[in-house]
């Protein structure tokens, strides 16, 4: 029998931290861009989306890993879809029941977690070949890496687009032109193209710090 690995060995921790930085699903693998554009106008929905996606990637990877030896190869992708879809609908239902305001803002994008490429990507690339525990950590790590970018993008978009953070006014009311000041919220930041530009800037900054990521 092989030697049992400790629950939080360095290897396991790497599974969690790598996707947050050098294997980031959004900035390095360029997955899940669509929803990163759609739900990042305000911080609160972005955060809820980040948590939802993290939970779904984590648990779907874990469940698929538990099932990996039994799945008939011919219906492998369909089985994955059923598991992911079930989890997403459960998350959607819970949001509707306990975070109604946010679920209204997220609208269809909760349902669209199903087609977030990160989830299927991690199942295919990792969960089907690894044990449940590392798969869970890998899924959570990738979800967190995705979520981190979402929150950073939402931070800038809410601050410059609405002058608020989590709905609280940050930029003083007296600065606004309507109150005799010099400042106005930037309408462009609210629209999706600006999210793409912010993601681009994040990629730029990340690569200028980590030369390994450039042009392999």
């Amino acid at each position: 029998m092989e030697e049992k690995e400790p629950m939080f060995s360095a290897k396991i921790l790497k599974l969690f931290t790598n996707p947050i930085n050098k294997d980031n699903p959004v900035t390095v693998l360029i997955l899940g861009i669509c929803s990163a554009l759609a739900v990042t106008v305000k911080l609160e929905p972005a955060l809820v989306m980040a948590v939802s996606v993290t939970l779904v990637t984590g648990f779907s990877s874990c469940i698929m890993s538990c099932m990996r030896h039994t799945i008939p190869n011919r219906i492998r992708l369909i089985v994955q879809l059923v598991v992911v879809a079930t989890l997403v609908i459960v998350v959607d239902q819970i949001l509707q029941a306990y975070a109604y305001e946010v679920s209204k803002q997220l609208s269809v994008y909760v349902g669209l977690i199903i087609v977030n490429c990160i989830i299927m990507g991690r199942i295919e690339a990792f969960a089907l070949g690894n044990k449940p525990w590392p798969s869970l950590i890998d899924g959570l790590g990738n979800g967190a890496g995705y979520g981190l970018i979402l929150v950073v993008v939402a931070f800038f978009r809410e601050l410059f687009g609405s002058g608020t953070l989590f709905g609280f006014q940050i930029i003083p009311e007296s600065w606004y032109i309507s109150n005799g000041g010099f400042y106005e919220n930037n309408g462009l930041v609210i629209l999706p193209p600006m999210a793409l530009i912010i993601v681009g800037l994040i990629i730029w900054i990340q690569r200028s710090f980590n030369k390994q990521l450039i042009g392999k």
Binding site: T70, I71, P72, I75, I78, V79, V82, V83, A85, T86, I89, V90, Q93, I94
Partner: peptide, 16 residues
Amino acid sequence: YASILVIVAAATLAVT
């Protein structure tokens, strides 16, 4: 396999 999977998924959703 497919039948059991679908029944389990349906039951989970119905309960939720």
